[in-house]
Design a protein around this nucleic acid. Structure first.
Lengths: 240, 240
DNA sequence: TCGAAAAACTGATAAATATCAACTTCCCTG
DNA sequence: CAGGGAAGTTGATATTTATCAGTTTTTCGA
């Protein structure tokens, strides 16, 4: 079932896929010139917060989490990126260190484009520049949206939102498989709650008939109800 | 006293002042061509979430909050912008509606630059483009930083951070006056906590000798201790 | 400058969420 | 395919934070 009309999913996706897809072939070729393709196993770190960036990453296949780790080890997931998305460009563009870490949630194939190539193409390609501007300004909307959810919504609502967002990610990965496959820790770190509470809320959702779970695999069986639980259904928004 | 070495203030500021300051005079002139200057009283709304943007705003004087309002009226402040900062460009660049609202925390003088002029200069000025890219990628770091604070830090730590950030804002406004002058509601909406709890935490800080307050005016008397309370002092970070 | 109205403050209580300690299940590897 | 460690689950409890119901103080316009 589609989310159209029941959940504003655009407010949750960075949509960086469109950057690579929509730039001229010539620019793409130049970006790919010195690109290297790397395999990452589940759990592998792609880059670490605080490290000096040396290029950008282009996810060919798989799902990646972007997160920050607290001084006492707690992790907060900022974003989950899937196939076709770019990561690591913020640090290059801001000329700072990586603001967050990235690691593979499942086995991934990820291309690396050296900083020099990226910057060179950027400086000569108005379209790439334009796409990045559009993309990052949209990210602002996504991130502020996230902030308001983290500070104003209940744990239950946040879990509902997390599940809806992840379902889309996994659906995009493999169009005939919309099962979420992620650890309970990652889920709780995405929703910003304790793992134990996440488990309890999942159980409640299961009892409500919203989802079906077996081991770590979660299948949403009633996306509409989940959207209602999230209190984020488009209808609710319009009424306010 | 300076924050150097005790608090990473850069991780809290968008620094959009540098955009207007560092572009060629010619570009500035073109941006200013149809600019109109407007006065706003304390509390006046500059733009509203969901509205179609028609231009960008350049704060000449005063302090502005950017915030989102929840469906039941609760407000979360995303950012506080001061003199020299630009606001409202995200919506223009993303070709979406305003993702958040903006209103004056104190009396302001704000210039309005029509969308057409901004886009025209943008398309012909590589430097403006570059500055915006750098700025927005830095914003990513600021916003993800915020997210981790909202989900992982205690109310007390968040209030400490809020006060440190605001002190800088007010200091920039008027270099010989570093007194924070903002309502308790705004303070609590910035820290993401209930107003009553904010008041209690302020009282505690007052008793600790961290600050002095009279009416709504707050003066930080021990910024070092405040940085320690925030658990964000650079030292602490390095040790981890 | 007086007198509402709004904002600030306080204490008591409720609600939400985290933590802790144990147990169970899953899954990977030798 | 057995054993062990990691991940998941559960119930009890602690902690944090919000809410409620007032009182006090400040602010601002008539």
């Amino acid at each position: 079932m589609s989310l159209a009309g029941i959940f504003p999913i655009d407010q949750w996706n960075f949509k960086s896929q469109s950057i690579m897809k929509s730039i001229p072939e010539e620019d793409q070729d130049r970006l790919y010139a010195n690109m290297t393709i790397e395999s990452y196993n589940k759990g592998d770190v792609i880059f670490k917060e605080g490290a000096v960036p040396s290029g950008i990453f282009f996810i060919q296949k798989g799902i990646v989490k972007k997160y920050k780790v607290d001084r006492d080890g707690r992790e907060q997931i900022m974003y989950v990126a899937g196939t076709g998305e770019l990561i690591g460009y913020h640090a290059i563009l801001s000329e700072e260190r990586y603001p967050d870490s990235a690691s593979a949630i499942e086995d991934c194939i990820i291309a690396f484009i050296p900083k020099e190539d990226f910057l060179e193409v950027l400086h000569s390609s108005p379209i790439l520049t334009q796409r990045l501007l559009k993309n990052m300004s949209h990210e602002y909307a996504v991130l502020t949206n996230n902030i308001s959810v983290f500070t104003q919504r209940t744990a239950r609502e946040r879990v509902a939102i997390t599940l809806i967002v992840l379902r889309e990610k996994y659906k995009n990965e493999d169009s005939n498989e919309e099962t979420i496959n992620i650890s309970r820790s990652d889920l709780s770190n995405m929703a910003g709650i304790a793992k134990e509470n996440l488990v309890r809320i999942l159980k409640e959702f299961k009892n409500l008939g919203v989802l079906f779970s077996e081991g770590r695999k979660i299948t949403i069986t009633n996306i509409k109800m989940l959207a209602e639980i999230s209190s984020y259904s488009t209808k609710t928004l319009k009424i306010r």
